[in-house]
């Protein structure tokens, strides 16, 4: 079992961020830190799909595949990379199952 399969991710609670889409980029203001993050797709879509749940990469991919037209199994690597970027920004928390 790889690290990506055991790690769960939890998004910053929805009431703790202000999300403003602008043309090709989306602004995410984080109340806790006072930092404004400027992100591109699919980062805002990932945050929205995660809701309040602790999810594995595969579970996030499944949720996104249900909403958007793509194969969730092929997108896992991309979503794994984006989740870790969001975690480095502090917009997603890593938890271990």
């Amino acid at each position: 079992m790889t690290a990506s399969q055991t790690t769960k991710y939890k998004a910053e609670p929805a009431d703790q961020i202000l999300v403003t889409p602008l043309d090709s980029l989306t602004l995410v203001y984080q109340r806790r830190s006072g930092i404004t993050h400027i992100v591109a797709e699919p980062a805002p879509e990932i945050l929205e799909a995660m809701g309040a749940d602790a999810l594995s990469v595969e579970e996030v991919a499944q949720r996104l595949a249900a909403q958007f037209d793509f194969d969730g199994t092929q997108a896992t690597d991309i979503i794994y990379a984006r989740l870790n970027e969001l975690a480095d920004l502090g917009l997603v928390e890593r938890t271990h199952a």
Binding site: L27, G34, T36
Partner: peptide, 26 residues
């Protein structure tokens, strides 16, 4: 100039954007 570029340029043109916190963002 697209709104996202305007936003980035105006955060650089503002000396108190960060200090104002959420009010500055809105």
């Amino acid at each position: 100039v697209a709104p996202s570029e305007v936003f980035m340029r105006l955060t650089q043109a503002s000396t108190n954007y960060v200090a104002l916190g959420e009010k500055g963002f809105s």
